[in-house]
Amino acid sequence: MDEFKCEIKTSNSKSGPGDAGRTGSWRVERPVIDLSKCTPAKRQKDSCYLCWLYCPDGVISKELEPKIDLEYCKGCGICAQECPTGAIKMVEETSLIEEERKNDEKN
């Protein structure tokens, strides 16, 4: 009789990128890392990683040269705000897209 017995009947997800679909298209500004100022990249050893720690979407990798997964980064700018050396700048997506288009045309 109790055939329904308490299976999950609502939405659920494991934490991590992709939880709400490909949210990269939500972005207005893109975080761009200047590796010459980024602490782990500059020292070539595991350190700082405040951007990785603070990213609410978990899309920044914990590598000597941190990478941002732009498929999912919503462009909130918290990483840029938290970076102690000011290595991350928020850049208008529209200007980057124009630049990319010009590069494509050249190629």
């Binding site: 999950i8 939405s11 659920n12 992709g18 939880d19 709400a20 679909g21």
Partner: peptide
């Protein structure tokens, strides 16, 4: 009471996460 699906600190997850107007693939 034996609930099949419960919150478990060893296996963290979100319940009742935001849904979209459409069905969509998870991660």
């Amino acid at each position: 009471y034996q609930y099949k699906h419960t919150l478990d600190p060893q296996n963290p997850e979100n319940l009742n996460t935001v849904t979209m107007p459409f069905a969509r693939p998870d991660r």
